[in-house]
Design a protein around this nucleic acid. Structure first.
Lengths: 173, 173, 173, 173
DNA sequence: GATGAATGAGCATTCATTCAT
DNA sequence: CATGAATGAATGCTCATTCAT
């Protein structure tokens, strides 16, 4: 990966996150990255290829975080870690998730195994806690999780820490 | 509103909901509606004007539903009605919400007073229930609501009714 | 067919004939035709569609000439008419044939039933003349025909009329 | 001439012959030759330079064949040799002639002294045979020759040997 | 000699939009 | 009200070519 390749990826994810994949032109990406437009296609074949590289890089960067959670053992600690994620994203993560969730609304939205791994871990937690319908419980939990990350990325609610506390209390974490 | 005007709106919202506002061309809308492309501009000035008409029509159609909720008085009945919304959408409503939520991820996402009215009603509920931090409680509730509608529109989880039950139980409704 | 549509076709065939299909840009066609570039695609879908329209128009224009020959009955008169064709082309015909023969050198060169009809007519002539291997005779005749038209279009030999006389004498016409 | 230089030339003439000079990208040549794209320009300056090298190499390879014909003395033997050429090409020759004749249809088509030498030899033959208008006779003969090579390269007529016989008989060779 | 990253002009095509009819 | 021809700017992408290594 050359330096310019990285600049293209950085510029692209910022623009995609802000304006949406279809609304961003390869020309504007090239300008922001200060490279020639042709270079995008030399490195990533086409616009969709650039998108896929972006998603792959985002997943790889999140891998560490997910792994940490997967290695946890105490049920309530796990849930707390999971539900904390939407409330503790750095800039890079925010851009990745904005890109991912904006794509989810379109046909052929990308797969994200990361989310399944998260849900699977949550399922094991509810099993450990002895709940009866663990899949529905996990489904509800991930639904809340998705509501949280959606609002954190689009509304930026000012009372987010308080809302977080409410959720924590609701699950007695 | 002429018949063709209606066909344009119907075609547009379906396409927008499926592929996203920017990804849909006025040409494809005209073809689906079986009208000339020029007619779109005669009736709605430009593509953005068409979008606004769509949002306005969607709001008007939801007005009745919201009004019904606003007129309810029993706290738990209100919450149950609100949280039920995402799980009971017809085709028209689904298309409207898909359009609205896909737009939310882009800059200059449209205002939707409807959501504020819903949240305000929820706030009065939590006040009535004697909770201390009603804004955070309502914030959390609407976060869950958004998670629910998001997943119902993008994931279509097969165990949705069970997940709904979990949420109902969580709020003791 | 609008006026501008005709101007596009006229400009296109002149440029294609002179510089070759691939070497000519749609932009240059639009400029020569004094229309916007987009109009080409509105009328002919894409560059290949424009080419096909050109070929179709060329065939239609030649139809009359071929029909005249097909209706002839006297063997030697027929051959003389056929072999005369390459030596008596007007500007429009020249452009069409230049386009057609330049395309023949590329893969997927277009079909031209006109040529088969011409060859079929020549076959009937040689049958009428009582020759034994009429297909080889017709094949040779059309080979000469193709040599004639090729040179008339690319070399413009100054002694063309004399060469024509030689061919006439060779077939005793 | 290095080994890679040869691979470039071989790849280029095959692609040029099949798809036409303008339609072939330097990139595709490099890929077929399994060399870097830059190497083409180091060796041949630019795409046109590559073309010229190709034409030069083709002429050199044909030199021997032409020389053999030029050294012949018996008139009918000469004509038979000349008219045989289009019907007896190996793969390399075919590619060269396809390239040459596809270029002839475009402006600035390359000179090919080889063809003039062939025609000059034919002129001497007709002189020797005591014909009156030797230039027109030679012109007609070369016209037929061009028709033959054109069809052999583009139509590949299945009865080519029979057609060849017809031509032989026509000139009483 | 050879590579491959990088360029910028140019390509075919699509876009939202205008306007005469 | 409605059409469809027409526009020009913008799009994603390819091109021949350069150059540091």
């Amino acid at each position: 990966m050359t330096e310019k390749q990285g600049k293209i990826l950085d510029s692209a994810i910022q623009l995609f996150a802000k304006e949406g994949y279809t609304a961003v032109s390869t020309r504007s990406i090239a300008q922001k990255a200060e490279v020639s437009e042709g270079l995008i296609f030399r490195h990533f074949i086409n616009k969709k290829g650039l998108l896929q590289s972006l998603l792959k890089r985002g997943e790889e960067r999140l891998e560490k975080t997910i792994l940490t959670i997967e290695e946890l053992t105490h049920p309530k600690v796990i849930l707390k870690h999971v539900i904390s994620l939407p409330f503790n994203m750095d800039g890079n993560q925010k851009d990745f998730w904005k890109l991912y969730y904006s794509l989810r609304w379109q046909i052929n939205s990308p797969e994200l195994p990361l989310l399944d791994r998260l849900e699977n871990k949550v399922i094991t937690v509810f099993k450990a806690l002895g709940l009866s319908d663990v899949h529905s419980e996990a489904g509800a939990f991930m639904m809340i999780w998705e509501g949280a990350i959606s609002q954190m990325l689009t509304k930026k609610p000012k009372n987010a820490p308080m809302v977080f506390q409410v959720l924590i209390k609701k699950y007695d974490l």
